[in-house]
Design a protein around this nucleic acid. Structure first.
Length: 833
RNA sequence: GGGCGGUUAGCUCAGCUGGUCAGAGCGCCUGCCUUACAAGCAGGAGGUCCCCGGUUCGAGCCCGGGACCGCCCACCA
């Protein structure tokens, strides 16, 4: 750290890239696959989308994981943070399609093979972006073993899982009502559907017969009606059950059936049943064995079944149907209706429920072991409230639609020939087979992430050394989508849980409480923040913000982190500009403040370890801040300024500084690494801080007495400063003290006083008695009477408490005794005033 | 329609198993360029802990009810 004298600020911009290079060159992020999973520490990163750019969520997620990984390395553990990206089927395909459109081309024009080729090209060009951005954050992922969910080996793992689950009867093909996303032209799973509230529609009341009027917001779907349902106990309609009504426009005879799903209070109490286009009706239809008619096809247009409306868009068909009904006088009511409507989370378009032949995964066999893993405590979810959500969801789990009508993804290992279906790892023998064009839901491959990235199904050294992983760090929104599925698949295919802890962290909201999003313009770019304040500041700030609930982005916390980095920089500067070049880094405490700081340091270490253990990153960050500011800098460094920087003090200062850098490193790795060079000692090795082992707290260095003595000193100096501030007293004071003399000199220096027998009127400040300046006796008296009032109030409270028989009789003895002591002290102080 | 979380200083948030718990950071005010740091130092002001009941010797903390905010799940056309 040349030119330390001239630099009074930590200039992150000039050092960060150099430090990243040193870390990467050291290879510390790429551990050898030795040791056991119990000894080692491993994390699998939630794979960012290959198309993605680093957003605030990644930055928080990455800061937490890197802190954990660095902490583990500091303990001397072999630590691996598995890195990789997700092919993100729909998202990626959509982006490339958009690009093609801008070039006047389209996916269809290219054809499947060329399109997929194009996506790979695109991925090669832009896919590395987010990985590079993780480096800016200081994330020490294993960049030398980067994975991708479309890698050859990963594809093989996915296919194997599909084939095995098929053979075990868990994967099957069925005609089922699915969530059709017209935007992506594919079915999507229930979890990818967003129920949007407050959508305004028109509720049409349509007359089917003299007795039957139905209400619907989708009049065009009446073309697919196959029944009308009423509640079995509904007196108004009981006589109709078993009869039929004629479907307007179509002429089909619809049976009137009884079903308890019908709400008698809603509308007229008659429900049109459209099994082909409504999830509810689909269930009712299956129970009553009704025909399923599809009038809307997968191309998003009305089908042949829609008769004269065929070929129209559903919206146009709605208009036409309503007009036709109007012409016949069958629309008997229209009203505005606000309700909840499903939308695609992917494309943002309104879901079109329709019947489609898709592949599904049965979950009833997979869910129970995954529930047990959490309820038995083998997998611990933090905070615990999240495990209830997890269990509840798994208990109500339904079949998962795993096929997607996309081109980018893992194509199903399924072939058809006439009525035959073949599922296998290799294409079937013989002619005439055609492969299923569909691909798997992206989350199908993500579910294998913790073990497929380590080489499963091969029995690799990586798998043996790092699986199961230690902790999964993720946001709440993918607890079902991803975490639950990893547990199910891990248990099924590796026979072991994929991780022992799940830490569910905050979602960072915009400062105004809205969602951070590009479209709202509420996003804050973490890279811009890193440029402005440094990676350490961003990491510290995000950790300090983090919580078990969603939090608003706080620029102050980032600045606080920046201030901390700068503070450490200057503290180091101060030490290095003063100490001698002692080689010995062992502490040599010579005074009470030396013993005090060593004692406080041990506590800071123990606190940090506890907070890591508890995944309490906000307290970890603030604890560090408090130690550096509130103890090391504000008091210890100020205290030693009055002493000669001899060999003893130098050794102690160097030791404390080294230990502080080691302790802070997992949170603020850049500034600590930069400073480490200067204090690492003269052992001739230029070893990275990131590779240096950290000692745990040393109980032998805890010194209660030193803590009490310096605690008194601090209190007295503070009281004296407040008094000076209030009375405007600047003079050197002659003071009389009655305490021990261990801290006499320090007290004199920090309190700006000298010892002696003061004359004139005296005032007590902490443990001191100093002369009240004559000019300010009014102020002193005011202060004194304020204190008197305060004391009297507290005495009254304590005395009242003790006079309460209930309190004395029922409160624990220790509490009562403490109250008595307190009262006594208060009275003593009042008497002395 | 269920379920969960929140409501504490101007702002963002801590407050563990009820007994110095009324806190932190930022902001604000005052005074300081005290030779590591003005991205600094010292000091200070600021709060019916959402409301109403209850339990208790004692309640931000526990219980009941209510109000508002947010999230998740859910097949009422």
């Amino acid at each position: 750290m040349a030119g330390l004298q001239d630099r009074t600020r930590f200039e992150h911009a000039t050092v960060e890239s150099r430090i990243v290079s040193r870390w990467l060159e050291s290879g510390l992020h790429h551990p050898d696959p030795v040791g056991t999973p119990e000894e080692n520490f491993s994390i699998a990163i939630p794979p960012p989308n290959v198309t993605g750019a680093l957003h605030m969520g990644h930055a928080l997620n990455g800061s937490i994981q890197d802190t954990l990984v660095r902490w583990a390395r500091g303990e001397g553990r072999n630590a691996k943070w598995v890195l990789g990206t997700d092919h993100a089927g729909i998202a990626t395909q959509t982006q490339v399609e958009r690009l093609l459109r801008s070039e006047g081309s389209s996916r269809e024009e290219l054809g499947r093979e060329a399109f997929v080729e194009r996506v790979w090209q695109w991925r090669d060009q832009y896919g590395g972006q987010i990985v590079e951005q993780y480096k800016r954050l200081g994330a020490t992922c294993d960049y030398d073993a980067e994975r991708f969910t479309m890698d050859e080996a990963y594809v093989a793992a996915v296919q194997k899982v599909f084939v095995e689950l098929y053979e075990q009867g868990l994967i099957y093909r069925d005609n089922y009502l699915v969530n059709w996303d017209p935007g992506s032209g594919s079915a999507i799973s229930d979890l990818e559907v967003e129920q949007r509230e407050g959508v305004r529609d028109t509720l049409y009341k349509i007359r089917y017969s003299d007795d039957v009027v139905v209400a619907t917001v989708r009049p065009e779907t009446l073309l697919a009606d196959t029944a009308v349902a009423v509640h079995p106990d509904d007196e108004r309609y009981r006589h109709l059950i078993g009869t039929t009504v004629t479907l307007p426009l179509v002429g089909r005879e619809l049976p009137v059936i009884a079903d308890e799903h019908v709400d008698r209070e809603f509308g007229t109490g008659c429900l049109k049943i459209t099994p082909g286009h409504d999830p509810n009706d689909f269930e009712i239809g299956r129970m009553h064995g009704l025909e399923q008619i599809s009038v809307i096809g997968e191309d998003g247009l009305m089908t042949e079944q829609a008769g004269r409306f065929a070929g129209l868009t559903p919206a146009a068909a709605q208009e036409a149907v309503v007009a036709a009904l109007d012409a016949e006088g069958l629309i008997v009511g229209r009203e505005e209706y606000v309700h909840t409507v499903p939308y695609s989370h992917r494309s943002g378009e309104r879901i079109e429920p329709l019947i489609s032949l898709q592949w599904f995964m049965r979950m009833d066999e997979l869910a129970p072991p995954a529930i047990d893993a959490v309820t038995s405590g083998r997998v611990r979810i933090h905070p615990p409230s999240q495990s209830r959500r997890y269990v509840d969801w798994l208990e109500g789990i339904r079949p998962w639609c795993v096929s997607r009508q996309l081109w980018w993804g893992h194509q199903l290992p399924v072939w058809y020939r006439a009525d035959e279906t073949y599922v296998g790892l290799t294409p079937p023998e013989g002619d005439g087979w055609e492969r299923d064009p569909d691909v798997l839901d992206t989350w199908f491959s993500s579910a294998l992430w913790p073990f497929a990235t380590l080489g499963w199904p091969s029995d690799t050294a990586e798998l043996r050394a790092f699986y199961p992983t230690d902790v999964m760090v993720t946001a709440r929104d993918i607890l079902f989508l991803w975490v639950a599925r990893m547990v199910m698949m891990g248990l099924r295919f590796t026979g072991d849980i994929p991780f022992s802890d799940v830490y569910v962290h905050s979602v960072i909201q915009a400062p105004d409480g809205r969602r951070m999003s590009k479209s709202l313009g509420t996003g804050i770019d973490p890279l811009a923040e890193i440029d402005a304040h440094g990676a350490d500041a961003v990491r510290f700030g995000l950790l300090a913000m983090s919580s078990t609930q969603d939090v608003r982005y706080s620029a102050e916390k980032i600045r606080q982190g920046q201030a901390l980095a700068n503070k450490l920089f200057n503290a180091t500067r101060f030490v290095l500009l003063n100490v001698d070049a002692a080689e010995d880094a062992a502490p040599r405490p010579a005074t009470v403040e030396d013993r005090w700081i060593l004692s406080r340091l041990q506590r800071a270490k123990a606190d940090a370890a506890e907070r890591i253990e508890a995944f309490d990153f906000a307290k970890l960050a603030f604890g560090l801040y408090d130690f550096v500011y509130g103890e090391l800098c504000d008091w210890y460094l100020e205290l030693v300024k009055g002493r000669p920087f001899d060999a003893d003090l130098s050794a102690t200062l160097r030791h404390v500084l080294r230990e502080t850098l080691l302790l802070a490193h997992p949170v603020i790795p850049f500034v600590t690494e930069e400073l480490w060079d200067s204090v690492a000692g003269t052992d001739g090795q230029s070893r990275l801080l990131a590779q240096t082992r950290r000692d745990g707290p040393d109980g032998a260095l805890i010194d209660e007495r030193a803590e009490a003595e310096i605690g008194d000193l601090i209190e007295t100096v503070r009281a004296l400063r407040a008094w000076r501030e209030e009375t405007g007293t600047r003079d050197l004071l002659v003071a009389r003290a009655n305490g021990p003399d261990a801290t006499r000199d320090a007290l004199a220096r920090l309190g700006k006083l000298e010892w002696g027998e003061p004359g004139g009127e005296l005032v007590r400040i902490g443990s001191l008695e100093v002369p009240a300046p004559a000019v300010d006796t009014a102020v002193v008296e005011a202060q004194r009477s304020a204190r008197r009032a305060e004391l009297e109030q507290e005495i009254a409270r304590a005395a009242g408490k003790l006079a309460n028989d209930g309190f004395v009789a029922k409160a624990p003895e220790a509490v009562v005794a403490a109250e008595r002591d307190k009262l006594e002290q208060l009275r003593a102080e009042l008497g002395a005033l």
